[in-house]
């Protein structure tokens, strides 16, 4: 059984009578990268803040590394690193000094860790430049370095690629993947950049108006988003036979409602239609389907499909 790093049970948070989170139950397993997707005000940051102990839930419970209760949660939070909303930097300090300050707070004795982390996030050549003079991207990098202090087992990052240049985005993406693979780190990451999130996350949690709309793995998402010809007909068995024998492909999937998803011949739809008709099969549905993560997200939260 996989270890649950973070588990929330019917989490509710109310601000001034408005439910920001309503009965949110999520479970994060070790060594996976979770992409938290939602519109502005959907409750992403509130969920992260509750996990980090920055705010308390109105109702529901939270478990960190299998522990619950205020004292245990507080102790277990030493095992997490986070950057929520924007990085907590002291403006008149350099990158190295900022890291030292946060290292001291965590009581980490190693003095080399600061330079190692700065090198890891690509800030090793900032010298005496103060944090107040950093670009947004540099601040984000430093925030990530701070979050990585103490080798956390759970990393919570809220919009970490905001303000990063394209190269920086790739570097941070590679870094997160490396951390997950090499250190079995669990990462909860929120971003509005869905194509970017698609390249880094192994699981997705879609949150909308304070409720979890969908929790889906990358494989399930790819399955849902993969472009295909959806064929509905009166003789599904015969259709499968035609696809295999006459079209010569096994790259299809029969759905529970007996419709068939054909992943080949997307550029030659007419051939497929002609072949099926030629075998006397009556087609009830024949559509091209498949989404990007954006469209999938929009469809899940109840917007128009294929917007």
């Amino acid at each position: 059984m996989k270890e649950h790093v973070l588990k929330t049970n019917c989490l509710t948070k109310t601000y001034h009578g408005v439910n920001v989170l309503q009965g949110v139950s999520v479970t994060l397993e070790a060594g996976r990268i979770y992409g938290l997707i939602g519109q502005n005000g959907a409750g992403k940051t509130t969920l992260m803040r509750i996990a980090a102990g920055l705010t308390f839930p109105t109702d529901g419970s939270i478990e960190l590394f299998g522990k619950s209760g205020d004292a245990d949660l507080q102790a277990e939070r030493k095992r997490l690193g986070c950057m929520i909303e924007y990085p907590g930097l002291i403006p008149y300090m350099t990158a190295l000094e900022n890291l030292k300050y946060h290292r001291l707070i965590r009581g980490i004795p190693s003095k080399t860790i600061e330079n190692e982390l700065l090198a890891l996030v690509g800030l090793d050549n900032t010298g005496n430049k103060k944090a107040k003079d950093f670009s947004l991207g540099m601040k984000q990098r430093l925030g990530i370095a701070i979050a990585l202090l103490g080798d956390p087992e759970l990393l919570i990052l809220d919009e970490p690629i905001n303000g990063l240049d394209p190269l920086g985005v790739v570097e941070i993406r590679n870094l997160l993947c490396k951390l997950c693979e090499e250190r079995n780190m669990t990462i909860l990451i929120s971003s509005h950049n869905l194509p970017e999130l698609y390249q880094v996350a192994t699981d997705y949690i879609i949150i909308h108006q304070g409720t979890i709309k969908k929790s889906i793995t990358l494989r399930e998402l790819e399955e849902s988003c993969k472009h295909h010809i959806l064929i509905g007909c009166d003789q599904p068995e015969k259709l499968i036979s035609v696809i295999e024998m006459q079209l010569g492909t096994t790259n299809y999937k029969v759905m529970p409602d007996k419709t068939v998803k054909l992943y080949d011949y997307l550029d030659d739809k007419e051939l497929v239609a002609r072949t099926i008709f030629g075998n006397g099969i009556v087609i009830t549905d024949y559509t091209i389907q498949g989404d990007t993560l954006e469209n999938y997200f929009i469809s899940v939260i109840g917007g128009g499909r294929n917007v």
Binding site: A52, G53, L54, Q74, A75, E76, R77, K78, L80, G81, C82, I84, E85, Y86, P87, G88, L89, I90, P91, Y101, H102, I105, R106, I146, G150
Partner: peptide, 18 residues
């Protein structure tokens, strides 16, 4: 107040300090 402004106080809470 500076710690609230630059959120360093949040980091202290998030890393398990009461």
């Amino acid at each position: 107040c500076g710690d609230f402004d630059n959120k360093t106080i949040h980091d202290a809470v998030a890393c398990g300090c009461s």
